[in-house]
């Protein structure tokens, strides 16, 4: 059973360097079990999805990306990808909602599209969120489009996420009435509903955990639904709690380690034994710091999930492994 049965829009945010794009991709795979259609969106213009999945750069339109993580019946669903580009989103928006015809082309020629997408305050974000909204809440205007069971947004970093989703606030100074105002209000209704969840990715270090706590407070203040916290890049758990305590105290049994090494067929010279003991001690110190941060994360009052740090980096296979781990922990059904 999933922790988020009602959620259609999963927004993934996190501090830079915590691996939020990896988590968003893994979550999309985890959500796409048998018969499901999932859309993975990126808005930062980095082509991160194409790089992670090793496919050609994505155009600003929906593309079939890969199959999901197979469900209990062994059948996978389908994951689609969308690289949301503000200019394309604006042109699509104009053609869906306004029959501008010649004027649309004139807007482009006079640099209005460029102005709106790069300089006009708030408009860029609204175009990006507007496209996400459209993908979640398909209506009759977009004929023949796929109805998605879930949309995963690889969002902006934690520091910007509230501003990004709080579209009506961002436009408040500009559009007090008129069509843009009513459309941004409709978008806010979805973003504030239980059909949306904003997940935060962190690592077990002081600053990212602090930023996660601040992010949760800001989301709550803005009435935006807080999802789970995904703790990423967790160190390997190869030593038991007792071993860690002994390692931290610096009283690991040297002779025992040396004889174990000999028994396992490795020449136990002093350098190696010292090295292993020092590594264990350093590791134990870092684990202790992780544990103190884990307590803080536990106190945030939201479901938490943990993903391991993979020494070899993240490739396609690793994404499916991480997806399986998220599913096993209940982030998806």
């Amino acid at each position: 059973m999933s922790d988020w049965p009602k959620v259609r829009l999963h927004v993934v945010t996190g501090k830079g360097g915590t691996g939020k794009s990896t988590v968003a991709a893994a979550l999309a795979l985890a959500l796409a079990d048998s018969g499901k259609n999932v859309l993975l969106c990126e808005v930062e213009g980095r082509q991160g999805i194409a790089r992670m999945f090793d496919v050609d750069p994505l155009p600003p339109e929906e593309r079939r990306l890969t199959t999901g993580l197979p469900g209990a019946d062994g059948e996978p669903g389908v994951v689609h990808a969308l690289h949301i580009d503000p200019e394309a989103a604006l042109l699509e928006y104009l053609s869906l909602y306004y029959k501008l015809g010649r004027a649309g082309r004139a807007l482009d020629r006079f640099g209005v599209i460029e102005f709106a997408t790069t300089i006009a305050p708030g408009v860029r974000d609204v175009l990006l969120t507007g496209k996400v909204f459209e993908a979640v809440q398909r209506n009759s205007r977009n004929k023949g489009a796929i109805q998605y069971d879930a949309v995963v947004l690889d969002g902006p970093p934690t520091g910007r996420i509230v501003q990004f989703l709080n579209v009506s606030n961002e436009l408040a100074g500009l559009a007090k009435v008129g069509p843009i105002k009513s459309q941004s209000d409709t978008m806010m209704t979805l973003f504030r509903s239980p059909r949306t969840a904003v997940h935060l990715v962190t690592v077990l270090e002081e600053m990212p955990v602090q930023e996660t706590a601040d992010g949760i407070a800001q989301l709550r203040e803005a009435d935006l639904p807080v999802g789970g916290v995904v703790v990423n890049l967790v160190r390997p758990q190869d030593l038991s709690a007792e071993d860690l305590a002994v390692a931290r105290a610096g009283t690991l049994d040297r002779a025992r380690v040396a004889s174990d090494l000999e028994a396992a067929g490795i020449e136990a010279d002093t350098g190696l034994v010292d090295g292993l003991l020092a590594e264990a001690r350093d590791h134990a110190e870092r684990r202790a710091l992780e544990d103190s941060q884990r307590v803080l994360v536990g106190g945030l009052g939201v479901p938490t999930y943990e993903l391991p740090r993979l020494a070899q980096g993240v490739d396609l296979g690793a994404l499916y492994e991480l997806a399986a781990s998220l599913r096993a922990q209940g982030m998806s059904s």
């Binding site: 390997p236 030593l239 038991s240 071993d243 174990d260 396992a264 292993l276 003991l277 264990a280």
Partner: peptide, 11 residues
């Protein structure tokens, strides 16, 4: 625990 230390070393 030596096995654990070796695995850490490998990682």
């Amino acid at each position: 625990s030596t096995a654990g230390m070796l695995r850490l070393h490998a990682d």
